[in-house]
Design a protein around this nucleic acid. Structure first.
Length: 411
RNA sequence: GGCGAGGUUCCCGAGUGGUCAAAGGGGGCAGACUGUAAAUCUGUUGGCGGAUGCCUUCGGUGGUUCAAAUCCACCCCUCGCCA
């Protein structure tokens, strides 16, 4: 199996150095590669998924992943793809983040250190924090041409709005990471997002100069939706996180099932392990049948991120709510004491307490617009009390807008 | 360091003493139409147990005033030119 070609077939490759050689290497013996993630939050989000999937594919092909948490570089902030400087986080915070990131990555990668190609999690703070400024300048800095750095796309853009010296150094640090991992772990391949191209190439150059060795790199596309949105933090309804406490598996499933028709098959290639020939079958579906593609996509993607069981639950809940099949057991729910009905509880209370609406004002607004439902009945006056005869089996199904459901179980 | 421009609600961007919770656009949300899609049209878009009311918001802190996003002082930050 041609590993590189299969990645290309899945649209996972954007740019690469020395394709021919890289292809040979990936076909031959297992190699060590690295992918960096800057710790900028306690959870990964959709924007991190493509690099993770690539790492996973490569590991399945027998190669050894080195996952680099940018504990030190996060303190500097990569100017690539950003218009403003990142906020600086404390060392402690970033260390905590690294721990939770690893938990999430375990769904995608095998971190078993018994196996030869078990993934390794590294933190560049371990070597970058030890650097001596003067030595670094002499050993590493002298290999970098400022003239050339200024032509890097990431820097060029920031020249418009401003770039501090701190961030300007990011390229050197990332290059040093590559050098370090080459020396220490024999990493000969770096993979990153398209915005990392400049940093990756800089690292390759550095290794050639310092070690007279050829190493390789490729980038994956920065995925955008058909409407031009980045797959990163800002999605309708807020960020989609991999942490189930931030984005529940149900919400995660819903995100995928709601993607634009035009993206469905494309996302299947990127975000599932389904073989491309199977995806080709789904691509043939048109019109309303595209929903079948999205159902598959949603199920597979959720299973990867949250496990088969959670995916099954999310799927059941979706079926119960949107096509009336199956039971509503797995619909997100909250328990409320039955006594509160006698004390007087209104729709406003329920909708805010379940988090379906962030404020009472929002409930009233939605009510005015006809977007509030209890048991599929439109709620015209959300201030009115809930009465016991409205309950069905001691439970109420709330709905805000077309798609957001929540169940209340009175106990 | 000098000079100039600027920091406004999720984003961009108007506003230069009361009529400002703050134009307009984007985005979001809702309704209609649909297929939990897209496109389109319409509405909506700080919070508050229901309010010609209160609270929070216009970089920060103080001040002037019956009244400040708007005026004054100091400070912080960003950009540009010069050094």
């Amino acid at each position: 199996m041609e590993t590189l070609q299969s990645l290309i077939d899945r649209s996972l490759v954007y740019q690469m150095t020395n394709e021919e050689k890289l292809n040979e290497l990936l076909k031959a013996d297992p190699l060590s590669f690295y992918i960096g993630f800057d710790a900028t939050a306690s959870s990964l989000h959709l924007g991190h998924l493509v690099p993770l999937m690539i790492a996973s594919h490569l590991q399945r092909a027998g190669h050894k992943p080195h996952i680099l948490i940018g504990g030190a570089t996060a303190l500097v902030g990569d100017p690539s793809g950003r218009s403003t400087e990142r906020s600086l986080e404390s060392r402690d915070t970033i260390d905590q983040w690294a721990v939770s990131l690893k938990t999430q990555m375990k769904r995608f990668l095998d971190f078993n250190d018994e196996s030869a190609n078990g993934a390794l999690l590294l933190n560049n703070a371990d070597w970058l924090n030890k650097l001596n400024y003067i030595n670094f300048l002499r050993d590493i800095g002298k290999h970098f041409s400022v003239n050339r750095m200024l032509t890097a796309e990431s820097v060029k853009q920031r020249l418009e709005t401003g770039l501090s010296f701190l961030e300007f150094n990011y390229m050197l640090l990332q290059s040093y990471d590559f050098l370090h991992l080459f020396r220490d772990k024999n990493c000969i391949l770096q993979v990153g997002g398209a915005d990392q191209w400049g940093n990756i190439v800089a690292g390759i150059d550095l290794i050639r100069r310092k070690e007279s060795s050829e190493v390789y790199g490729f980038t994956c596309p920065l995925v955008t939706t058909s409407t031009g949105e980045k797959m990163s933090k800002s999605q309708p309804g807020g960020a989609i996180w991999l942490d189930p406490d931030l984005t529940s598996p149900y919400q995660y499933y819903q995100f995928w099932i709601n993607v634009d028709d035009r993206d469905a098959a494309y996302f299947m290639k990127l975000y599932t392990y389904l073989p491309v020939n199977e995806i080709a079958e789904y691509e043939k579906l048109t019109g309303a049948d595209t929903r079948r593609t999205k159902e598959k996509l949603a199920f597979e993607a959720t299973a990867i991120a949250h496990g088969f069981e959670e995916a099954k639950k999310a799927q059941n809940a979706a079926k119960a709510l949107f096509s009336g099949k199956g039971n509503q057991q797995n619909v997100p729910s909250t328990e409320v004491p039955l006594s509160r009905i006698n004390e007087g509880i209104s729709a406003i209370d329920l909708f805010t307490e379940t988090g379906l609406c962030p404020s009472r004002g929002e409930v009233k607004r939605l009510g005015k617009q006809g977007g509030l439902y209890i048991q599929d009945e439109r709620v015209s006056s959300p201030e009115e009390r809930i009465t016991e005869d409205m309950l069905d089996n001691n439970s109420l199904l709330l709905r805000a807008g077309k798609k957001r459901y929540h169940r209340i179980n009175f106990v």
